[in-house]
Computed example of a mutant assay.
Amino acid sequence: MNRSTLHTVLRALGVRDGHYYIEGVHEPSPLPTDFLYLRRSRTTPGMWETGAYERGTWETVAQHAREEPACTHLLRLLTGTGNPPSGGNTP
């Protein structure tokens, strides 16, 4: 799954906009006080990072070599599962 698909899945699941930040796809402004995020690494070129933003500090939880595993990780952090809903009804 890519970042756009992740955003679509999170919206379908009813995850509130202020709970997450996805670089280039969903960047709330002004930034909420705290949220989980997915963005390109600021320290390692070519890597992606997932983490938590709290009170003005970006705290990296994990780095990923590709966008897809980073998306799956953020989905897991936000919902407890790394699997998008399968067709049909979504909660």
Rank of each mutant, 00 (worst) to 15 (best):
86 S>T: 08
63 Q>K: 14
47 M>N: 10
23 E>A: 13
57 T>N: 02
79 T>V: 06
18 G>C: 08
48 W>Y: 14
25 V>N: 01
5 T>A: 12
36 L>Q: 11
3 R>L: 01
34 D>V: 03
8 T>W: 00
89 N>L: 11
19 H>Q: 14
75 L>Q: 07
83 N>Q: 15
77 L>Y: 00
70 A>E: 06
49 E>T: 02
65 A>C: 07
14 G>L: 02
30 P>Q: 08
4 S>P: 02
74 L>A: 07
59 E>A: 15
77 L>K: 00
66 R>M: 13
65 A>V: 13
50 T>L: 04
63 Q>W: 14
70 A>I: 01
57 T>L: 06
22 I>F: 07
19 H>G: 00
54 E>G: 01
53 Y>I: 02
53 Y>S: 02
18 G>S: 11
89 N>V: 12
28 P>C: 15
72 T>C: 13
52 A>N: 11
57 T>A: 03
80 G>W: 13
85 P>I: 10
56 G>Q: 08
61 V>P: 00
73 H>V: 06
26 H>G: 00
27 E>C: 13
12 A>V: 01
86 S>G: 04
36 L>A: 08
45 P>K: 10
43 T>F: 04
20 Y>V: 07
76 R>M: 08
36 L>V: 04
27 E>R: 06
56 G>W: 08
17 D>A: 13
30 P>W: 00
61 V>W: 14
60 T>L: 02
2 N>D: 11
87 G>H: 11
71 C>T: 08
19 H>D: 14
72 T>A: 13
8 T>Y: 05
89 N>R: 10
41 S>N: 09
15 V>F: 01
70 A>C: 12
54 E>M: 02
34 D>F: 09
40 R>L: 15
72 T>I: 14
64 H>Y: 12
30 P>S: 08
87 G>M: 11
4 S>V: 10
62 A>R: 15
50 T>H: 01
10 L>W: 05
19 H>N: 09
58 W>R: 09
37 Y>E: 00
66 R>Q: 15
88 G>P: 04
80 G>M: 12
5 T>R: 14
73 H>R: 15
64 H>S: 05
23 E>M: 06
73 H>E: 14
90 T>A: 10
52 A>E: 10
27 E>V: 11
29 S>L: 12
56 G>Y: 07
3 R>K: 04
79 T>C: 07
17 D>P: 08
54 E>L: 07
22 I>Y: 10
6 L>I: 06
48 W>T: 04
12 A>F: 00
40 R>A: 09
38 L>S: 05
70 A>V: 05
32 P>Y: 07
